[in-house]
């Protein structure tokens, strides 16, 4: 009888111990937190219909920058700047040359045999042998040069700090500048909340400037008059998300826009009309909350994405011809 009581006591004790262990295991004590009830959830927007994906990643090219800054393509070569260095690389990844720079570069553009490198407040001009030609005067105390585009002896310079586009001749003579204001009574022009302000000229000689605060592409005459625009604000795949996108872009040979977004990093292609053609690289190809890759495009429509987080150039080739 006495032993039976002890056994019952031990069984009850064992049950209590098991209950305590299980309760402890399933509790929300430190280190055992449940889901965040305040989760900022954009997972739905990261899902991309596979039918929309028009490109596949075929190659990654290693680069040796701690801080990659910009990329452009010219005549079979990729020109990449970062740290205090310019690298000229063949599209198969072979390093052609390395040129030391006097400062941290921000952007690069190449025309014929001349390399223009944008630093924070000024430009420097190099030849293909890496010899420094002319160093331009700084544009201003507040300048943050973010993008360059060249067309027919003109160079367009995007200054995010002053929210202006400058037009110079390629030999350094200032021709004009504009702020994207359509008239004097319009208070705003370019809306640049952060230093992402891209521009490019397509094969038709049309200058398109990103107005990132409006999620817009704006087409200007070389004199700075607004001629056309399209915009699309949305977290959905059709639009541009966040406060200042697209962060970078380039033109395909047919005039389509290849856009790169920050925040929810993704690369997409839009028709010249602004309608979404498809996706080059969905968000799951990139680090969460990563940087928007800079974009370069070759004459075959291959897209080179300079991935600032993985510190490599990622080549995306079209799966099929882009829809007309």
């Amino acid at each position: 009888m006495k032993n039976k009581g002890i056994i019952i006591f031990l069984i009850i004790l064992a049950v209590v111990i098991v209950v305590v262990i299980v309760a402890d295991f399933t509790s929300t004590k430190p280190g055992k937190q449940g889901e965040n009830p305040f989760l900022y959830d954009v997972s739905e927007f990261k899902k991309v219909d596979p039918a929309l994906i028009l490109y596949k990643e075929t190659k990654d090219l290693r680069i040796k920058f701690d801080r990659p800054a910009g990329i452009t393509y010219n005549d079979g070569h990729l020109f990449v700047v970062g740290d205090s260095l310019l690298q000229i690389i063949k599209t198969d990844g072979t390093l052609v040359s390395e040129i030391a720079l006097p400062d941290a570069p921000e952007c690069i553009e190449v025309a014929k045999d001349t390399i223009f490198i944008g630093f924070k407040k000024y430009l420097a001009v190099y030849n293909m042998a890496g010899e420094l030609g002319k160093v331009w005067e700084p544009f201003g105390e507040k300048s943050v040069i973010t993008s360059l585009a060249i067309w027919n002896g003109n160079i367009f310079i995007a200054d995010a700090g002053n929210r202006k586009v400058y037009r110079y001749s390629t030999n350094g003579k200032k021709l004009n500048e504009f702020e994207g204001k359509t008239s004097d009574d319009v208070l705003h022009g370019f809306i640049i909340p952060s230093p992402y302000f891209d521009l490019a000229v397509n094969n038709e000689g049309e200058l398109w400037v990103v107005n990132p605060g409006n999620h817009a592409f704006e087409n200007y005459t070389f004199d700075g008059n607004l001629r056309a625009y399209w915009e699309n604000s949305s977290m959905k795949i059709e639009g541009f998300s966040g406060c200042c996108n697209p962060a970078h872009y380039a033109f395909l040979p047919d005039g389509s826009f290849v856009t790169s977004e920050k925040g929810m990093v993704r690369i997409k292609v839009y028709k010249p009309s602004g309608e979404l053609s498809g996706v080059v690289a969905p968000p799951d190809k990139f680090k969460d909350d990563g940087h928007a890759p800079d974009i370069a495009v070759d004459e075959s429509g291959n897209i080179y994405a300079l991935d600032f987080d993985k510190k490599m150039i990622r080549l995306f080739e079209p799966l099929r011809a882009l829809p007309e």
Binding site: S194, S241, G242, K262, G263, D289
Partner: peptide, 9 residues
């Protein structure tokens, strides 16, 4: 903070 950090400044 998450929204501002991811999509803003």
């Amino acid at each position: 903070v998450k929204g501002c950090t991811s999509f803003g400044n």
